[in-house]
Design a protein around this nucleic acid. Structure first.
Ligand SMILES: [Mn+2]
Ligand SMILES: [Mn+2]
Ligand SMILES: [Mn+2]
Ligand SMILES: [Mn+2]
Lengths: 227, 227
DNA sequence: GGTATGATTTAGGCATTCCTAAAACCAGCC
DNA sequence: GGCTGGTTTTAGGAATGCCTAAATCATACC
């Protein structure tokens, strides 16, 4: 049952359900509708179809959860998406704030053969340009990074793991700051009352809003003085 | 009015009408239906829609001709298609009998920005892997080659200009023969009663059916003894 | 000039996927 | 335990693009 057995709509629903499930567990109709930009009524309709295809478990009024079959397809679509983003950035020089839109369409028409060729040309990468993990061919994927830049305390250092890829303007802002996956960051100060963080990137200090810092995931956190 | 203003279906209709128009002039409903794999009734329906959009001139029972607006879109789709084929073959090593299927889908979701990047990476190519001309950005395209390999007489030589790309099995056959655009070919013998041609390619002689030779266009024809 | 034949269009339907408006449901609160 | 506000589903409909079967048309031939 290759990807092409399902419509673009079904693929996008499953991918989105997968994303929401990672954050919220069970997926409510309204949340899914909001994320997809469709009306809740439309989402109820499609959800019933997905349930009939055994791609989600649906409990009326209680939202949905992916079945193993649904999750498998979601991971295939996400693999396409992230491999394409990586390829566009690396091989064709597409700016990282534009790769998402292009991948959103191409992901649905990429053949398995071309997927493999792209994977090989890139040297079997494990993350997309925003640091998000690329699902493996066998349908496994590393767990997401749970620590956010906004969780760090004054004096702590970390490595940027992943940035949110849904707002192109925010991505351009991150690029200006030099804030990209793999770069080390140190929190110099944290303003009170939900105020900004002052962070050092490449020996330059920047003040970053608390909310924006919530869109950045980090790893390898160390406190001042630690190894 | 970018390509994306029109559905994939409309794009494929216009592209196919353009192709048929090159060969037959006015495009009959049945011919279009045959080429698209749709029923004639469906084609009549879509044709009316295209006429309402001013993309074709439609005379009931007399078929259609593209308007300038329709031709412009057709050429944009064909440009996408052929640039993609060239890119897949050159940058990703996709065999030339497989590029068509991949391009058929991707052509509809390629952004203008990515089109330009691909064009630049390839060094602004003028033909696809099968030798077909790539329409220019300004919507112009060189005329097709009209002389076919099957038109040559014994003793004549020529250069392969273009091969038909619609039958993957035939493309694999051509590849085996070393028959590809740019290669020189000499007709050693022509069998009577519509029989095969004996041709020399790379100093090796092959017998090729008359019908198959009709799917190969040539240029720079010279007769034996000529310069 | 009538007529058969094939090409084309019309008629009626179906599947997808979306919408708005109205009804039904569920949970938290008094 | 009933109200109520927000969530979710149902009802009814629209657009797109395809189908088959049944007219209808054009034209080439007798
Ligand atoms: Mn998508
Ligand atoms: Mn991404
Ligand atoms: Mn196509
Ligand atoms: Mn081609």
């Amino acid at each position: 049952m290759p990807l092409s057995e399902h419509t673009e709509s079904v693929q996008d629903y499953l991918k989105t359900i997968f994303d929401i499930q990672r954050e919220h567990g069970r997926v409510a109709t309204t949340v899914l509708a909001e994320r997809l930009g469709n009306s809740p009524a439309s989402v109820t309709g499609m959800i019933k179809k997905l349930a009939a295809l055994n791609l989600v478990e649906y409990e009326p009024y209680q939202g949905v959860v992916l079945t193993p079959a649904g999750e498998k397809i979601a991971l295939e679509v996400i693999r396409h998406h992230r491999l394409i983003e990586r390829y566009l950035a690396e091989a064709l020089g597409v700016p990282w704030d534009q790769v998402h839109a292009e991948a959103e369409k191409w992901e649905h028409v990429l053949s398995e053969d071309l997927e493999d060729r792209i994977d090989a040309v890139l040297g079997y990468p494990t993350t997309d340009p925003h640091g998000a993990p690329i699902p493996r061919r066998d349908g496994t994927m590393p767990p997401p990074h749970t620590t956010r830049l906004s969780d760090l305390q004054t004096g702590q250092s970390a490595t940027i793991a992943e940035v949110s890829d849904h707002d192109p303007a925010m991505l351009r802002y991150f690029a200006e700051l030099g804030l990209r996956p793999g770069v080390d960051v140190t929190v110099v100060a944290v303003a009170p009352f939900g105020g900004p963080l002052t962070v050092r990137l490449d020996d330059v200090e920047h003040a970053v809003g608390r909310e924006v810092a919530g869109y950045v995931a980090v790893c390898d956190v160390t406190s001042a003085g630690e190894e």
